[in-house]
Nucleic acid binder design. Structure first.
Length: 595
RNA sequence: GCGGGUGUAGCUCAGUGGUAGAGCGUCACGUUGCCAACGUGAAUGUCGUCGGUUCAAAUCCGAUCACCCGCUCCA
């Protein structure tokens, strides 16, 4: 989530939206009659159709008619093929992808300050020995070797302070910008006054980079210069617990041992359920694409650049499921892995970023609540390539306002995943692509071909988050109308496409309504529900359709039987006009954008 | 995981120890010519769950579950 750049308030109430979702059958709490289960939600009849319509729209515009015919950066058509891969895969897939090692993030709590952080984000400052430090480079004359390390051997090699950062480089950056956050020994109150990165012999290996600290010791008023090595705190260093000082207070004995938060869902293959049978529910659909890259290349007539697309469920044991369906433990993704030559990757990245933004706008998130945000450099994931970056398409949900929450991430993954699978000792499969359009020309004038691992641009969207954003965007309070609210769905995703009502349930009107209903179902039934309802007052039926977000209601009345016209009532304006009965099908087709 | 809040009919909520309630919605019948109309009637609850105190618990106490808000987290 990111901060708002403009402060337009989001006035819709999430409680009201959730209430309508329950009342009208969009979303129910999962396992509700048993008290629910944290982080899981079920879709009711309208919600299931809405979700299907959004998934179908994506499939249509990605797989069936990629980018609605928009040409790629080099002017050629965009090529995409689909796959549908398993939720359970060989556990080695998740070793290679880094999820088994990296996704199960051990967490540490500071019992005193109640702060929590990832254990692998904790970086320790170690006092090092001068002889080690001088290898390959001269130490400036001004350096007075620190008595702390040399006179107190107990400190040498130990962690004397900690900071939280994503990498050594980031930790050094934090410290040099704000040296005061470093407390070298809380009992002696040795605060750092100035910190500079010493251009030591090993700057190519940041984990052995050293910092020069100027200390301000209140008692002695002396300035010491202290060489410090910075490196990730190993899990073993947390035991005994007094080894590692808190990054917040500098005090020891306040941190818990790293605890496994187990973000992967574990299960067992087969009935014996031993440790050897452990498997995982996928935390992302992407790996199913990568491990089938060679299959797709070998068995279909695709050529780079091309994409593989897939929708499907994924599972993450989120630490804190929160915000309705926004962060669920079971969720559905819509992912593209687009493979291209490394030289073209930046162009494709920009192409997908811009087109995906346009797509969400076209589907109904057109307003200021949708933004495209480039990640800052220090946010980039481990696979994100330097210089190419990652973008989020973000929506201002009522619960994130004035900030935004991610709907889709467009990431430049370089060849991280293909390379990981190719290099895993047990895959032993060459995943390099032979591009016969590249390479030197042979004598016959044909290119000799070039072998390479394609770079990957990954537009990865959350289907459930998309549904939630559409629900929030569509929710429109209107005190003027009986329902007090209506759902302003884009007709393309609206779960109910049209409704047919006899004004009263007699005098031939229900028969005529049934006829029109049959016509509309025949023509549009594959796109969504066509509602009909002969009972209750017409106003009540309109109001119900407002809450369901049905864009068009057609009412059969006495005049229909004599002059062959019906009333069409527009959801957004509540205005009514008469059109010929025979024009209704075309009217709906136009309204749904089918021209 | 921490702190705060909430949990009673489909929805919104009242109910401070003594028979489980209201409005709206839903359903049925009648009426009804265009925005939750009108009349009559009906159904709907283990008061989130479990335990304790009490002659008696929706109400007091404890635990637990779920949701909301703020932290934290979200390769």
């Amino acid at each position: 989530m990111s901060d708002a750049t403009d402060q337009q308030p989001q006035t819709k109430s999430m409680d009201d939206i959730m209430s309508l979702c329950k009342r009208r059958g969009f979303i129910y709490q999962a396992s509700e009659i048993y008290g629910g289960v944290n982080g899981f939600w079920d879709y009711g009849p309208l919600g299931a159709q809405l979700k299907k319509n959004l998934r179908d729209a994506w499939w249509q515009d990605i797989v069936m008619n990629p980018c609605q015919g928009k040409l790629g950066p080099k002017g050629g058509p965009v090529s995409i093929v689909p796959v549908d891969t398993c939720i359970i895969q060989n556990p080695k897939v998740w070793e290679a992808s880094g999820h088994v090692g990296g996704f199960n993030d051990p967490m540490v709590d500071d019992k005193e300050t109640k702060q929590r952080f990832r254990a692998d984000h904790l970086f320790g400052l170690y006092v090092i020995d001068g002889s080690e430090f001088t290898v390959g480079g001269a130490v400036p004359d001004s350096v007075e070797w620190n008595q702390l390390a040399l006179e107190n051997p107990a400190y040498a090699g130990k962690i004397i302070s900690t900071v939280i950062a994503g990498s050594v480089a980031e930790a050094i950056g934090h410290i040099t910008q704000d040296p005061k956050q470093v407390v070298l020994d809380c009992e002696l109150n040795l605060r750092v006054k100035k910190a500079t990165l010493w251009s030591g012999p090993n700057t190519d290996y940041p984990e052995t980079s050293a910092l020069l600290f100027s200390l301000s010791n209140n008692q002695q008023q002396a300035v010491l210069v202290l060489p410090i090595k910075i490196g990730q705190v190993a899990i073993d260093d947390f035991y005994p617990p007094d080894e590692v000082p808190s990054p917040f207070s500098g005090r020891r004995n306040t941190l818990t041992l790293p605890r496994d938060f187990n973000l992967m869902f574990k299960t067992y293959l087969g009935a014996t359920a031993t440790e050897d049978d452990i498997a995982y529910l996928r935390p992302e659909t992407a790996q199913g694409i990568f491990i089938n890259f060679k299959n797709v290349v070998d068995t279909t007539r695709v050529s780079v650049p091309f994409g593989i697309a897939q929708t499907g469920k994924a599972f993450r044991n989120e630490v804190t499921p929160r915000n309705f369906t926004f962060r669920s433990r079971e969720f559905e993704q819509m992912e593209i892995e687009f493979f291209c030559h490394p030289e073209e990757a930046n162009d494709w990245y920009a192409f997908w970023r811009d087109w995906r933004m346009q797509w969400w706008q076209e589907i109904g998130l057109a307003g200021e609540n949708l933004i495209l945000r480039e990640h800052d450099k220090d946010e980039l994931a481990h696979y994100a390539k330097e210089g190419a970056g990652t973008s989020d398409i973000e929506y201002r949900f009522p619960f994130t306002a004035p900030g935004f929450g991610e709907l889709e991430g467009i990431a430049h993954r370089s060849n991280y995943d293909l390379s990981a699978h190719q290099n895993h000792p047990e895959s032993n499969t060459k995943l390099e692509y032979l591009d016969t359009t590249r390479g030197e020309l042979a004598k016959n004038g044909q290119p000799k071909g070039e072998r390479y691992l394609p770079d990957v641009i990954e537009p990865s969207a959350g289907l459930d988050r998309g549904v939630l954003a559409i629900l929030c965007e569509a929710y429109t309070p209107d005190p003027e109308r009986p329902s007090k609210v209506y759902m302003k769905f884009h007709p393309r995703v609206a779960p109910i496409k049209a409704a047919v009502f006899p004004l009263v349930n007699k005098d031939g009107m229900p028969e005529k309504a049934a006829e029109l209903h049959r016509l509309l179902v025949k023509r549009f039934g594959h796109l969504g529900k066509i509602e009909t309802d002969p009972k209750q007052s017409i106003g009540k039926r309109y109001a119900r359709m407002d809450e369901a977000g049905c864009p068009f209601c057609f009412t059969i009345d006495g005049d229909t039987l004599t002059d062959g016209t019906v009333t069409v009532r527009d959801r957004d304006t509540a205005e009514q006009k008469r059109i010929p009965f025979d024009d209704v099908v075309e009217f709906v087709a136009t309204g749904l954008g089918l021209g």
